[in-house]
Computed example of a mutant assay.
Amino acid sequence: MVAENATPRGRGTGHNPANRFQSARIELVDDGWYQETPLPRLTEVRLERAKSVISRNDSPDIPFDRSLNPYRGCEHGCIYCFARPSHAYWDLSPGLDFETRLIAKTNLAEVLERQLSAPGYRCQPIALGSNTDPYQPIEREMKLTRAALEVLLRYRHPLTLVTKGAMVLRDLDLLAELAEHRLVRVMVSLTTLDDELKRRMEPRAAAPAARLRVIRRLKEAGVPVGVLCAPIIPMLNDHELERLLEAAAEAGADSAGYVLLRLPREVAVLFEEWLREHYPMRADHVLGLMRQSRGGQLYDADFSTRMKGEGVFAELIAQRFRLARRRYGLERQRVEGLDCTGFSVPGAQLSLL
Protein backbone atom coordinates (compact mmCIF):
# COMPACT_ATOMS: atom_id res chain seq x y z
CA MET A 1 0.00 0.00 0.00
CA VAL A 2 1.25 3.49 -0.82
CA ALA A 3 2.02 5.67 2.19
CA GLU A 4 0.23 9.00 2.43
CA ASN A 5 3.26 11.23 2.67
CA ALA A 6 4.01 13.00 -0.61
CA THR A 7 1.82 16.07 -1.17
CA PRO A 8 -0.65 15.43 -4.02
CA ARG A 9 -0.75 18.01 -6.79
CA GLY A 10 -3.13 20.82 -5.88
CA ARG A 11 -3.28 19.93 -2.19
CA GLY A 12 -1.59 21.46 0.83
CA THR A 13 -0.58 18.18 2.46
CA GLY A 14 -0.50 14.47 1.76
CA HIS A 15 -0.63 13.59 5.44
CA ASN A 16 -3.90 12.62 7.08
CA PRO A 17 -3.20 12.06 10.79
CA ALA A 18 -5.97 10.66 12.96
CA ASN A 19 -7.87 13.29 14.88
CA ARG A 20 -7.05 13.59 18.57
CA PHE A 21 -10.42 12.20 19.72
CA GLN A 22 -9.98 8.78 18.08
CA SER A 23 -9.14 5.88 20.42
CA ALA A 24 -7.57 3.79 17.62
CA ARG A 25 -5.33 4.81 14.73
CA ILE A 26 -4.48 3.23 11.38
CA GLU A 27 -1.10 3.92 9.81
CA LEU A 28 -0.46 3.27 6.11
CA VAL A 29 2.92 1.78 5.28
CA ASP A 30 4.57 1.37 1.88
CA ASP A 31 5.89 -2.21 1.81
CA GLY A 32 7.12 -1.91 -1.77
CA TRP A 33 4.60 -4.32 -3.27
CA TYR A 34 1.92 -1.88 -4.42
CA GLN A 35 3.29 -0.20 -7.55
CA GLU A 36 0.28 1.56 -9.04
CA THR A 37 -0.07 5.33 -8.80
CA PRO A 38 -2.86 6.12 -6.32
CA LEU A 39 -5.88 8.01 -7.60
CA PRO A 40 -6.04 11.71 -6.73
CA ARG A 41 -8.08 12.62 -3.65
CA LEU A 42 -11.24 14.30 -4.92
CA THR A 43 -13.24 16.83 -2.92
CA GLU A 44 -16.31 15.49 -1.13
CA VAL A 45 -19.01 17.79 0.23
CA ARG A 46 -21.26 16.74 3.10
CA LEU A 47 -24.54 18.66 3.36
CA GLU A 48 -25.48 19.82 6.85
CA ARG A 49 -28.70 21.24 8.28
CA ALA A 50 -27.36 23.63 10.89
CA LYS A 51 -29.26 24.52 14.07
CA SER A 52 -27.27 27.71 14.57
CA VAL A 53 -24.91 29.62 12.27
CA ILE A 54 -23.72 32.57 14.35
CA SER A 55 -20.72 31.68 16.52
CA ARG A 56 -19.78 33.82 19.53
CA ASN A 57 -16.39 34.50 21.07
CA ASP A 58 -15.05 36.64 23.89
CA SER A 59 -11.38 36.51 22.91
CA PRO A 60 -9.73 39.83 23.84
CA ASP A 61 -7.37 39.73 20.84
CA ILE A 62 -10.08 39.38 18.18
CA PRO A 63 -11.88 42.55 16.94
CA PHE A 64 -15.34 40.94 16.70
CA ASP A 65 -17.60 38.97 19.02
CA ARG A 66 -19.57 36.99 16.43
CA SER A 67 -18.85 35.21 13.19
CA LEU A 68 -20.50 33.32 10.36
CA ASN A 69 -18.90 30.44 8.44
CA PRO A 70 -20.83 28.84 5.56
CA TYR A 71 -18.39 25.91 5.35
CA ARG A 72 -16.36 23.60 7.57
CA GLY A 73 -13.02 22.68 6.04
CA CYS A 74 -11.43 24.62 3.20
CA GLU A 75 -10.42 23.50 -0.28
CA HIS A 76 -7.78 26.24 -0.55
CA GLY A 77 -5.52 23.82 1.36
CA CYS A 78 -3.35 26.42 3.09
CA ILE A 79 -0.85 24.34 5.05
CA TYR A 80 -0.64 26.83 7.93
CA CYS A 81 -4.41 27.20 8.47
CA PHE A 82 -5.18 27.55 12.18
CA ALA A 83 -8.68 26.12 11.56
CA ARG A 84 -7.41 22.64 10.63
CA PRO A 85 -7.76 21.23 14.19
CA SER A 86 -11.49 22.05 14.18
CA HIS A 87 -12.08 19.20 11.70
CA ALA A 88 -11.34 16.73 14.50
CA TYR A 89 -14.71 17.64 16.06
CA TRP A 90 -16.40 16.06 13.04
CA ASP A 91 -14.37 12.83 13.30
CA LEU A 92 -12.20 13.92 10.39
CA SER A 93 -8.49 14.53 10.05
CA PRO A 94 -7.00 18.04 10.24
CA GLY A 95 -4.72 16.92 7.38
CA LEU A 96 -5.91 15.99 3.91
CA ASP A 97 -9.51 15.55 5.13
CA PHE A 98 -9.65 19.24 6.04
CA GLU A 99 -9.18 20.25 2.40
CA THR A 100 -11.02 17.38 0.69
CA ARG A 101 -13.94 16.44 2.97
CA LEU A 102 -15.95 19.61 3.39
CA ILE A 103 -19.22 20.37 5.15
CA ALA A 104 -21.69 22.92 3.75
CA LYS A 105 -24.44 24.48 5.88
CA THR A 106 -27.20 24.30 3.29
CA ASN A 107 -29.83 26.11 5.39
CA LEU A 108 -27.47 28.94 6.35
CA ALA A 109 -29.66 31.80 5.05
CA GLU A 110 -32.80 30.45 6.72
CA VAL A 111 -31.14 29.98 10.12
CA LEU A 112 -29.34 33.32 9.87
CA GLU A 113 -32.66 35.10 9.35
CA ARG A 114 -34.15 33.31 12.33
CA GLN A 115 -31.26 34.29 14.59
CA LEU A 116 -31.23 37.91 13.44
CA SER A 117 -34.99 38.12 14.02
CA ALA A 118 -34.81 36.81 17.60
CA PRO A 119 -36.23 39.38 20.09
CA GLY A 120 -33.04 39.56 22.14
CA TYR A 121 -30.62 39.98 19.24
CA ARG A 122 -28.35 43.06 19.45
CA CYS A 123 -26.55 44.18 16.31
CA GLN A 124 -22.76 44.32 16.14
CA PRO A 125 -20.53 43.68 13.07
CA ILE A 126 -20.40 40.01 12.14
CA ALA A 127 -17.23 38.46 10.69
CA LEU A 128 -17.96 36.41 7.58
CA GLY A 129 -15.32 33.76 6.93
CA SER A 130 -13.35 33.97 10.17
CA ASN A 131 -12.58 30.25 10.34
CA THR A 132 -12.58 29.05 6.71
CA ASP A 133 -12.71 31.03 3.48
CA PRO A 134 -16.26 31.94 2.39
CA TYR A 135 -15.05 32.10 -1.24
CA GLN A 136 -13.35 28.72 -1.51
CA PRO A 137 -14.03 26.86 -4.80
CA ILE A 138 -17.26 25.07 -3.75
CA GLU A 139 -18.93 28.46 -3.23
CA ARG A 140 -19.20 28.64 -7.02
CA GLU A 141 -21.94 25.99 -6.92
CA MET A 142 -23.27 26.26 -3.36
CA LYS A 143 -23.67 30.08 -3.28
CA LEU A 144 -24.06 30.05 0.51
CA THR A 145 -21.88 33.12 1.00
CA ARG A 146 -23.95 35.08 -1.50
CA ALA A 147 -27.13 33.98 0.28
CA ALA A 148 -25.69 35.25 3.58
CA LEU A 149 -24.83 38.61 2.02
CA GLU A 150 -28.39 38.94 0.70
CA VAL A 151 -29.80 38.36 4.19
CA LEU A 152 -27.37 40.79 5.84
CA LEU A 153 -28.20 43.46 3.25
CA ARG A 154 -31.92 43.00 3.76
CA TYR A 155 -31.52 43.36 7.53
CA ARG A 156 -29.03 46.25 7.14
CA HIS A 157 -26.56 44.29 9.26
CA PRO A 158 -22.86 45.31 9.17
CA LEU A 159 -20.15 42.76 8.43
CA THR A 160 -16.47 42.28 7.82
CA LEU A 161 -15.26 39.73 5.30
CA VAL A 162 -11.85 38.05 4.97
CA THR A 163 -10.90 36.09 1.85
CA LYS A 164 -8.04 35.04 -0.39
CA GLY A 165 -10.45 34.03 -3.16
CA ALA A 166 -10.99 36.05 -6.34
CA MET A 167 -14.60 34.80 -6.46
CA VAL A 168 -15.54 37.64 -4.13
CA LEU A 169 -15.83 39.82 -7.25
CA ARG A 170 -18.85 37.76 -8.32
CA ASP A 171 -20.76 39.43 -5.47
CA LEU A 172 -19.58 42.95 -6.23
CA ASP A 173 -23.18 44.08 -6.76
CA LEU A 174 -24.15 43.14 -3.19
CA LEU A 175 -20.91 44.40 -1.66
CA ALA A 176 -21.25 47.77 -3.40
CA GLU A 177 -24.80 48.18 -2.11
CA LEU A 178 -23.71 47.18 1.40
CA ALA A 179 -20.92 49.76 1.15
CA GLU A 180 -23.41 52.49 0.23
CA HIS A 181 -25.03 51.93 3.63
CA ARG A 182 -21.66 51.67 5.45
CA LEU A 183 -22.27 47.99 6.20
CA VAL A 184 -19.17 46.21 4.92
CA ARG A 185 -15.39 46.13 4.98
CA VAL A 186 -13.42 43.48 3.07
CA MET A 187 -9.96 42.29 4.08
CA VAL A 188 -7.97 40.49 1.39
CA SER A 189 -5.44 37.99 2.70
CA LEU A 190 -2.13 38.58 0.90
CA THR A 191 0.71 36.36 2.10
CA THR A 192 3.25 36.47 -0.73
CA LEU A 193 3.96 37.94 -4.16
CA ASP A 194 5.91 34.79 -5.10
CA ASP A 195 3.76 32.53 -7.29
CA GLU A 196 5.83 29.43 -6.52
CA LEU A 197 5.59 29.90 -2.76
CA LYS A 198 1.85 30.52 -3.12
CA ARG A 199 1.45 27.33 -5.16
CA ARG A 200 3.13 25.23 -2.48
CA MET A 201 1.68 26.97 0.56
CA GLU A 202 -1.86 27.83 -0.61
CA PRO A 203 -2.41 25.50 -3.58
CA ARG A 204 -6.02 26.33 -4.49
CA ALA A 205 -6.19 29.96 -3.41
CA ALA A 206 -6.07 32.85 -5.89
CA ALA A 207 -2.71 33.95 -7.26
CA PRO A 208 -1.06 37.07 -5.76
CA ALA A 209 -1.84 39.14 -8.87
CA ALA A 210 -5.48 38.09 -8.68
CA ARG A 211 -5.74 39.19 -5.05
CA LEU A 212 -4.29 42.59 -5.89
CA ARG A 213 -6.84 42.83 -8.71
CA VAL A 214 -9.58 42.06 -6.17
CA ILE A 215 -8.39 44.97 -4.00
CA ARG A 216 -8.35 47.25 -7.02
CA ARG A 217 -11.83 46.29 -8.21
CA LEU A 218 -13.35 46.58 -4.73
CA LYS A 219 -11.82 50.02 -4.30
CA GLU A 220 -13.16 51.15 -7.67
CA ALA A 221 -16.63 49.95 -6.67
CA GLY A 222 -16.53 51.99 -3.47
CA VAL A 223 -16.13 49.00 -1.14
CA PRO A 224 -13.75 49.69 1.80
CA VAL A 225 -10.92 47.20 1.50
CA GLY A 226 -7.80 46.39 3.49
CA VAL A 227 -5.02 43.83 3.41
CA LEU A 228 -4.23 41.11 5.92
CA CYS A 229 -0.69 39.73 5.82
CA ALA A 230 -1.35 36.51 7.65
CA PRO A 231 0.63 34.60 8.44
CA ILE A 232 4.09 36.10 8.48
CA ILE A 233 6.46 33.11 8.43
CA PRO A 234 10.13 33.52 9.42
CA MET A 235 12.54 32.85 6.55
CA LEU A 236 9.72 32.17 4.08
CA ASN A 237 7.75 35.37 3.53
CA ASP A 238 8.82 37.80 6.29
CA HIS A 239 11.23 39.52 3.87
CA GLU A 240 8.22 40.46 1.70
CA LEU A 241 6.37 42.39 4.40
CA GLU A 242 7.12 45.89 3.10
CA ARG A 243 6.55 44.90 -0.52
CA LEU A 244 3.20 43.30 0.36
CA LEU A 245 1.98 46.49 2.04
CA GLU A 246 3.28 48.66 -0.79
CA ALA A 247 1.56 46.54 -3.46
CA ALA A 248 -1.70 46.50 -1.50
CA ALA A 249 -1.63 50.27 -1.02
CA GLU A 250 -0.98 50.82 -4.73
CA ALA A 251 -3.98 48.61 -5.49
CA GLY A 252 -6.24 50.70 -3.23
CA ALA A 253 -6.16 49.15 0.26
CA ASP A 254 -6.63 51.61 3.13
CA SER A 255 -5.90 49.41 6.16
CA ALA A 256 -3.59 46.55 7.06
CA GLY A 257 -3.04 43.87 9.65
CA TYR A 258 -0.70 40.96 10.18
CA VAL A 259 -0.43 37.78 12.24
CA LEU A 260 2.72 35.87 13.06
CA LEU A 261 2.43 32.20 12.09
CA ARG A 262 0.22 30.26 14.52
CA LEU A 263 0.68 26.50 14.85
CA PRO A 264 -2.01 25.19 17.25
CA ARG A 265 -2.39 21.46 17.94
CA GLU A 266 -2.03 19.31 14.80
CA VAL A 267 -1.05 22.25 12.60
CA ALA A 268 2.46 22.21 14.09
CA VAL A 269 3.11 18.63 12.94
CA LEU A 270 1.57 19.17 9.50
CA PHE A 271 3.49 22.39 8.93
CA GLU A 272 6.83 20.89 9.97
CA GLU A 273 6.29 17.90 7.63
CA TRP A 274 5.40 20.28 4.78
CA LEU A 275 8.38 22.49 5.56
CA ARG A 276 10.87 19.61 5.50
CA GLU A 277 9.39 18.35 2.24
CA HIS A 278 9.42 21.68 0.37
CA TYR A 279 12.16 23.73 2.10
CA PRO A 280 14.44 21.21 3.87
CA MET A 281 17.47 23.54 3.98
CA ARG A 282 15.48 26.25 5.76
CA ALA A 283 13.33 24.12 8.02
CA ASP A 284 15.45 24.22 11.19
CA HIS A 285 15.95 27.99 10.86
CA VAL A 286 12.22 28.61 10.42
CA LEU A 287 11.30 26.42 13.38
CA GLY A 288 14.07 27.92 15.52
CA LEU A 289 12.76 31.45 14.97
CA MET A 290 9.23 30.28 15.70
CA ARG A 291 10.34 28.82 19.04
CA GLN A 292 12.24 32.01 19.79
CA SER A 293 8.99 33.93 19.24
CA ARG A 294 6.79 31.52 21.21
CA GLY A 295 8.59 31.15 24.51
CA GLY A 296 10.59 28.13 23.41
CA GLN A 297 7.60 26.25 21.94
CA LEU A 298 6.15 26.11 18.44
CA TYR A 299 2.92 27.60 19.77
CA ASP A 300 1.76 29.64 22.71
CA ALA A 301 -2.01 30.09 23.09
CA ASP A 302 -1.77 33.06 25.47
CA PHE A 303 -4.18 35.79 24.32
CA SER A 304 -1.60 38.51 24.89
CA THR A 305 0.99 37.00 22.52
CA ARG A 306 -0.58 34.40 20.23
CA MET A 307 -1.20 36.77 17.30
CA LYS A 308 2.11 38.64 17.28
CA GLY A 309 4.56 36.53 19.29
CA GLU A 310 7.25 37.86 21.63
CA GLY A 311 11.00 38.26 21.70
CA VAL A 312 13.54 39.92 19.42
CA PHE A 313 12.33 38.55 16.08
CA ALA A 314 8.65 39.17 16.82
CA GLU A 315 9.37 42.74 17.92
CA LEU A 316 11.39 43.36 14.76
CA ILE A 317 8.42 42.24 12.64
CA ALA A 318 6.11 44.48 14.67
CA GLN A 319 8.36 47.53 14.17
CA ARG A 320 8.73 46.89 10.44
CA PHE A 321 4.97 46.54 10.09
CA ARG A 322 4.22 49.75 12.00
CA LEU A 323 6.68 51.75 9.90
CA ALA A 324 5.49 50.32 6.58
CA ARG A 325 1.83 50.75 7.47
CA ARG A 326 2.43 54.41 8.25
CA ARG A 327 4.57 54.90 5.14
CA TYR A 328 1.88 53.54 2.83
CA GLY A 329 -1.13 55.11 4.55
CA LEU A 330 -2.72 51.87 5.78
CA GLU A 331 -3.63 52.94 9.31
CA ARG A 332 -7.41 52.89 9.07
CA GLN A 333 -9.07 50.52 11.55
CA ARG A 334 -10.65 47.30 10.26
CA VAL A 335 -14.16 48.01 11.62
CA GLU A 336 -14.02 51.80 11.36
CA GLY A 337 -17.17 53.41 10.01
CA LEU A 338 -19.48 50.37 10.06
CA ASP A 339 -23.05 51.41 10.91
CA CYS A 340 -25.12 49.38 13.37
CA THR A 341 -27.93 51.93 13.69
CA GLY A 342 -29.78 50.91 10.53
CA PHE A 343 -30.33 47.31 11.58
CA SER A 344 -33.98 46.26 11.41
CA VAL A 345 -35.96 43.07 10.99
CA PRO A 346 -37.85 43.24 7.68
CA GLY A 347 -41.59 43.44 8.29
CA ALA A 348 -41.25 43.89 12.05
CA GLN A 349 -43.31 46.54 13.83
CA LEU A 350 -41.26 49.62 14.63
CA SER A 351 -40.83 50.67 18.24
CA LEU A 352 -42.89 53.66 19.45
CA LEU A 353 -40.14 54.65 21.89
Rank of each mutant, 00 (worst) to 15 (best):
residue 38 P to R: 11
residue 46 R to A: 09
residue 233 I to D: 05
residue 198 K to D: 09
residue 225 V to W: 00
residue 132 T to I: 12
residue 159 L to W: 06
residue 164 K to W: 08
residue 108 L to T: 00
residue 273 E to M: 08
residue 141 E to Y: 14
residue 233 I to F: 13
residue 49 R to A: 13
residue 55 S to H: 07
residue 124 Q to V: 09
residue 215 I to R: 00
residue 253 A to L: 09
residue 108 L to N: 00
residue 185 R to F: 05
residue 237 N to C: 12
residue 251 A to Q: 02
residue 270 L to Q: 01
residue 187 M to R: 08
residue 32 G to H: 06
residue 110 E to H: 12
residue 184 V to M: 02
residue 141 E to M: 12
residue 123 C to R: 07
residue 247 A to P: 03
residue 5 N to F: 14
residue 130 S to A: 15
residue 102 L to P: 04
residue 197 L to T: 04
residue 313 F to G: 02
residue 278 H to A: 07
residue 81 C to G: 04
residue 201 M to W: 10
residue 194 D to L: 08
residue 39 L to V: 12
residue 39 L to N: 13
residue 1 M to I: 07
residue 179 A to H: 08
residue 169 L to D: 04
residue 38 P to F: 10
residue 235 M to K: 10
residue 17 P to H: 05
residue 163 T to S: 11
residue 45 V to R: 14
residue 75 E to V: 02
residue 329 G to E: 07
residue 238 D to I: 01
residue 89 Y to T: 03
residue 80 Y to P: 04
residue 160 T to H: 07
residue 90 W to R: 09
residue 108 L to C: 00
residue 232 I to K: 04
residue 353 L to F: 14
residue 231 P to I: 02
residue 305 T to S: 15
residue 349 Q to V: 06
residue 45 V to I: 15
residue 185 R to W: 06
residue 103 I to N: 00
residue 314 A to S: 13
residue 159 L to C: 14
residue 293 S to F: 03
residue 200 R to M: 15
residue 253 A to T: 07
residue 269 V to A: 11
residue 74 C to G: 14
residue 217 R to T: 15
residue 183 L to Y: 05
residue 226 G to N: 05
residue 288 G to C: 08
residue 320 R to W: 01
residue 190 L to F: 06
residue 269 V to C: 03
residue 16 N to G: 10
residue 117 S to M: 11
residue 353 L to S: 12
residue 325 R to F: 05
residue 246 E to I: 00
residue 86 S to E: 11
residue 21 F to A: 14
residue 247 A to E: 09
residue 20 R to S: 09
residue 327 R to N: 04
residue 291 R to T: 10
residue 328 Y to F: 15
residue 154 R to T: 09
residue 218 L to F: 01
residue 168 V to C: 06
residue 209 A to Y: 02
residue 53 V to R: 03
residue 312 V to W: 10
residue 212 L to K: 00
residue 191 T to N: 07
residue 79 I to T: 13
residue 59 S to M: 09
residue 203 P to T: 03
residue 294 R to W: 01
residue 176 A to W: 02
residue 130 S to Q: 11
residue 247 A to L: 06
residue 155 Y to H: 13
residue 34 Y to W: 13
residue 280 P to R: 04
residue 166 A to G: 08
residue 251 A to Y: 04
residue 351 S to H: 03
residue 255 S to R: 12
residue 37 T to F: 06
residue 348 A to N: 01
residue 117 S to R: 14
residue 88 A to W: 02
residue 104 A to K: 03
residue 11 R to V: 03
residue 212 L to F: 07
residue 23 S to Q: 13
residue 37 T to C: 10
